[in-house]
Structure formats: C-alpha cells, structure tokens
Design a protein around this nucleic acid. Structure first.
Length: 427
RNA sequence: GGCCCCAUCGUUCAGCGGUUAGGACUCCAGGUUUUCAUCCUGGCAACACGGGUUCGAUUCCCGUUGGGGUCACCA
C-alpha cells in the first residue's frame, strides 16, 4: 500500500509551491489506490497558531485534497522524538557535543555514515553524495527540543509513509534522512523531488512576486478546479496534449515518472485562460451563484447570467460587464459616442427604431430580433448603422453581448427611456 | 567558494538516435458575428555553446556557459 503525505508547517498562508507538492502527493496516492496523509509540523509555537492551521486546512479542503487519516500534529510527538534520540545515542549513531555559539551546553549530533551515498530518485534518477561532502548534524538542540530532520523522519515512519514527494530544495536533506532511517532500523521510503516553481527572474516564487499564496488566487476568483488543474500541469503532463482535464482524468494519467525535473514558472495569462474555460463549462446555476456574489440580484436573472458566462475569465469582470443592466446612470464611453453616435442621421435612426419598439406588444428576444432585422430591411440601411447606436444608447458601451437579448432583458420601458435620454443628451 | 540539481518557441508541456521539432497560453492575420467574447482557419516563434560516441544527434557521454538549490542548535 502506497502512502504519501503532505507535511507543511502552518505559517498563516499556504504557498502555491507547497500546495503543488500536496497536489502531486494526493494525485499519486489516488492513482495508485494508496493513501494520502497530512502531517502538521507545528513545532514552531510562535507561528503555528490555531488560525494558521485553519488556513491550511481550509486551503486543502478548497482544493479537494482529502486526507485518508486524521492529521498528525508533530507537536504531540516530542517524547517519541526524544526517545529515539536516546536510542541513537545508545546505539552509537549519535553523540553529544557542546557546539558553543548561541546554545547552552550539549546538543545531540547524528553521525553521518563514512560511506558514499546514493539513492534512486523517482523523478531525477540516480543521486549521489560522497561521504566527504556530508556532515554530522544536530538532531536535538541544547534546550532539549528535537530538530526538523529527526522529527520529520520519525513521523514519516510513524505514519508509514512509503513515498516522500517534496520540493527539490530538500535533496541535500534526503541524504541525512536516509542515514537516519537506516540508523533507526526503519525501511527507507522512495523519494521524489519536484522542481521548484520560479518567478519571472528565475528565483523561487516568493511573496514579493505577489500571488504566491493559495488565498490570493481564491480571492481573485480563480476556481478550485482551475488552480488544481494548472498546478498539476506545472512539472507534469499526461504525456499527450490534454490540458484541461477532469480530476479523474488526472488521477488516471498521473505518474511520478512523467514529472519533469526542471523548474517552471507560473503564467498568469494561461491561468486566466484556463479559468475562463472552467467558467464556460460550469452549469448555468453554478455560474449564477458566482454572479450573485459579485452583484446582488444578478444571480436571479438567468438569462443575463447566460449572456455573461461565455465572456468572463474572472468573476471580478462580471460587475463591470453587468453594470448597465442595473444602473440607469451608466457612463457613456466617450470614444464610442464620438465615433458612432455623433454622426448625421444617427439620431433620426434612433427615433425611428424607438417608434418601432413602441409598437411591439411583446418584447422578448425573437420579437426584438425580428424588429431589428425588419427595420434594417425596410429602411435600406446596414446593421452597422443601427445596432451600434442602439447599443451605445442603452449601455453607453460600444461592445457587449448580443444586442437582441440585451434589449429583451432590459425590457421595453428601459430601452425606450434610455434611447430618449440619449437623444436628449447628445442630440 | 565546496557539493548538488537543471537547460526545447516569450511561457508551459511533448519529443526518449533518423520528425517539415508538435500541442497549449500569449501575440498577429483571416473567417463567423451589428460589436465584443466564444468558435473556426492560418501565421510568428525554440533544441544555450563546444567537443566527442554514431552511418546519423534535440535526444547518449564529457566540458563550457547560464540559472537554481544547499552548506544553521529554521523548517
């Protein structure tokens, strides 16, 4: 049984690089029918607040990274860690020493083996380290608290982890950890080191780059499916040309051997494109819910939501696009007015089309559409002479969704009053 | 600096000795559309460099260059 894990230390926000590691662990466990576990490395009391842990849990929940067991909190394991250190001391794998410096008194050091080390990384292949290039390291501080390396390895043993999938900034640590496993008499898990996510400068993605945290993306309106899909594709591909994939498809296709070992950069434009894809694929009701969140009462207007759904990449674009439906004091786009409205004959056309609309009993889309077409035909003018002015009159904008449905949704009264208002204002 | 990792279009992912080096995003052009978005068609654009190995290298090996990681009583 394959068991993977995500072992973050809660700091109050979840870095997307970390979340990507979590996704890969989750995907691998699901692909192999194994189990995915969570371990909260909350030994830093300063930062590991209840709030920070909640943020972490929420982020995982949002992305659907379900764990198969209750999370293990590292802070509950201190006794076990210290006991293991005693064993290591007793078996001669560790020794005490006063390293001086900041510390007070002795700390416990782990003795690295004299032999050269080599292991087969599931992604990078054979990785080697000469004994001369390794150093003994502290496993218990002089204040009696265990250090990351010890705690991490012991907890992985405790949780029965078979595959450690983590960022390749851990490669150097892995030699230490393998030595620790062996000294502890435990089975050494497989390791897979993921390439880093970098910024445009080629440096590791950090908060300075903005949008470094899962919360940033959620706030901006990226869907959980989008972020999951996009992050999964950073350093991995199914081997064919598929990009927008369902979770099940990703699970089926995922494998560590098809992960890349070179770093990747986040492309916000592609992320937005993908979000647009997911938005367009949504059920209308689901989109309506999002729309309702942006503009109250908008969600109730399914027809309007339908017009908006194919045009939006981020929910934040909904408000501006829908504004003129709700607001009679919409702004007139100056360029549009100058270009399409302030021309000979335009206002007469507007008056005539308004008269035509006036005669309409019904004002649903087919009727309005027919009226528009009939008008064009009867007057021997082009659509270009009619549609743009009408659009600007009712919305202030030069472009927008299909005109007929827009007019139908606005309703006869508003259309007529807005045309009248426009003529009065500019005519 | 020592040790380690990495290197295909601007970005991302294919290619795993013989290809017109492919897909996606972006951008550009055209089509559809009253407009915009969607959609369709087409286009621009890459194997970092130098040596080998081989009949043949983007692909294998070595080196150079460039980028990154790591060298804590942080995790």
């Amino acid at each position: 049984m394959i068991r993977t894990r995500f072992a973050p230390s809660p700091t109050g926000s979840v870095h997307i690089g970390n979340m990507r590691a979590a996704i890969f662990n989750w995907l691998y466990a699901r692909h192999t029918g194994g189990e995915f576990l969570l371990r909260v490395e909350d030994t830093d009391r300063e930062r590991s607040t209840r709030e920070a842990i909640d943020t972490l849990l929420k982020a995982m929940d949002w992305l659907g990274l379900s764990a198969d067991e209750k999370p293990l909190y590292q802070s509950t394991r201190m006794e076990a860690h210290l006991a293991a250190a005693e064993e290591l001391l007793a078996s001669g794998h560790a020794y005490k020493e006063d390293k001086g410096g900041l510390g007070q008194g002795d700390c416990v050091l782990f003795k690295m083996p004299e032999k050269d080390m080599v292991f087969e990384d599931e992604i990078k292949g054979k990785l080697k380290k000469k004994a001369a290039d390794t150093q003994d390291f502290v496993i218990v501080r002089s204040d009696g608290t265990p250090v990351f390396h010890l705690a991490n390895v012991l907890d992985d043993i405790e949780q029965g982890i078979t595959h450690v999938i983590r960022g390749d900034d851990h490669i150097e640590n892995t030699y230490r950890h393998i030595a620790l496993y062996k000294a502890l008499g435990a089975a050494v898990p497989k390791f897979a080191h993921l390439p880093m996510i970098i910024n445009a400068q080629g440096k590791p993605y950090s908060k300075r780059d903005g949008d470094a945290f899962v919360g940033d993306f959620k706030e901006k309106g990226f869907l959980d499916e989008t972020l999951f899909n996009y992050l999964a594709l950073l350093g991995w591909s199914p081997g064919d040309d598929r990009e927008v994939m369902t979770r099940d498809e990703m699970i089926a296709a995922f494998d560590l051997s098809s992960c890349k070992s070179s770093p990747a950069q986040v492309d916000l434009r592609k992320l937005q494109w993908m979000n647009g894809e997911y938005i367009r694929a949504m059920k209308p009701e689901a989109f309506a819910e999002i729309a309702e969140g942006e503009v109250s009462d908008l969600g109730k207007n399914l027809a309007l939501c339908g017009l908006l759904q194919s045009r939006v990449k981020l929910p934040s674009e909904i408000g501006p696009a829908a504004d003129f439906f709700f607001n009679d004091d919409y702004e007139y786009n100056a360029k549009a007015v100058k270009k399409k409205l302030l021309k000979d004959g335009v206002f007469q056309t507007l008056e005539k089309i308004a008269e035509r609309f006036q005669t309409l009993g019904n004002f649903d889309e087919p009727t309005v559409d027919k009226a528009l077409h009939d008008f064009v035909e009867e007057n021997g003018v082009g659509f270009g002479a009619v549609m743009p002015p009408v659009r600007i009159a009712v919305s202030g904008q030069q472009s927008g969704p299909d005109l007929a449905p827009v007019l139908a949704i606005l309703g006869k009264e508003k259309v007529l009053s807005r045309i009248a208002k426009t003529i009065q204002k500019f005519g």
